[in-house]
């Protein structure tokens, strides 16, 4: 009895010792020498693995950050300036601060503004739909509403409004990683400067048809009438192919363009309500849409 226990203990002990030696040798032999800064940098990064930086994940980005001499062109949209400054301090490299950005959906073609003229019955994917035909409205530029942007968002920051059938961005959750921008086959979503106090103004339409054509298919289409360009005192608005574009770097958020837009395709977000004016000229559609987009 005693000897049995003894033999067992010795045998197991020997086995354990042998295995330990083997393990040690293997560990030494296959040791990967790695820059410890990579791990540290990775731990500073938010760990969302969204790919917004252009790398496959936070790890790959950390490696790139450590390796590169000049990291000024690299940016983590999720962590923003805070994270980048921390990384800069840690790696002792220079970074450029960037204005924080947010995704904006440049289409106001809700069911009411832009009637549906046919019914799509294929796979529920904007990409499939866009490859099949021009879309379920007469506007061949507008949002298809199948939610490819929703399914690619890692942060749950975008969702389709069941009434307007348009995507809405949740300001608090959006990290401007740009996944939705890439997923949209109609190129409707744009990353824009978030603006002071999240206040921003943009043209919420990308229809490049002539004014009359665009107006016919959607009540809130930009018709390229140039009223906004005339109203703008800072030359921040350009019109190309019957479509206005507000340069976020030049715009001073005076809101004059919003007031003059005849179709209400310019959207203002997060502004305090206007003082009542003598002649309230604000287009009706705009109010509704501002609210829905602001959410």
């Amino acid at each position: 009895m005693d000897s049995t226990i003894l033999t067992t203990v010795i045998m197991l002990g020997l086995l354990a010792a042998t295995l330990a030696v083997i393990l040690y040798i293997v560990a030494q032999k296959f040791k990967v020498v790695e820059d410890e800064r990579i791990g540290e940098t990775e731990s500073i990064l938010p760990g969302a693995n969204c790919g917004g930086c252009g790398y496959t994940g936070c790890r790959a980005f950390a490696e790139a950050l450590v390796k590169a001499d000049d990291i000024s062109a690299m940016f983590c949209p999720v962590g923003g300036n805070t994270t980048m400054t921390k990384i800069a301090e840690y790696l002792d490299k220079l970074v450029e601060t960037k204005d924080s950005e947010i995704a904006v959906v440049r289409c106001l073609g809700s069911c009411e503004n832009r009637p549906r003229v046919n019914e799509f019955d294929g796979a529920a994917s904007c990409a499939v739909m866009a490859a099949t035909y021009s879309g379920d409205t007469d506007c061949s530029y507008g949002c298809l509403g199948k939610g490819d942007c929703v399914s690619v968002c890692n942060f749950g920051a975008i969702r389709i409004n069941s009434e307007t059938l348009l995507p809405e961005v949740d300001e608090d959750k959006c990290t401007a990683c740009g996944a939705c921008v890439k997923s949209c086959p109609k190129l409707i979503i744009e990353l824009r400067k978030k603006g002071p106090k999240s206040r921003r103004i943009y043209v919420s339409c990308i229809n490049k048809d002539k004014g009359a054509v665009a107006r016919k298919v959607c009540k809130t289409a930009c018709i390229g009438c140039a009223a906004c360009r005339k109203a703008c005192a800072f030359e921040s608005i350009e019109i190309e192919n019957f479509l206005a574009y507000i340069d976020p770097n030049k715009c001073r958020l005076c809101r004059k363009c919003v007031e003059v837009c005849p179709t209400g395709s310019i959207v203002e977000l997060n502004f305090p309500p206007r003082k009542p004016k003598v002649e309230p000229q604000e287009p009706k559609a705009n109010v509704v849409n501002t609210e829905t987009v602001t959410n």
């Binding site: 549906r116 046919n118 294929g122 035909y133």
Partner: peptide, 9 residues
Amino acid sequence: MNKLIISPS
């Protein structure tokens, strides 16, 4: 209005 149905083949 009679809406046509569209789908891929």
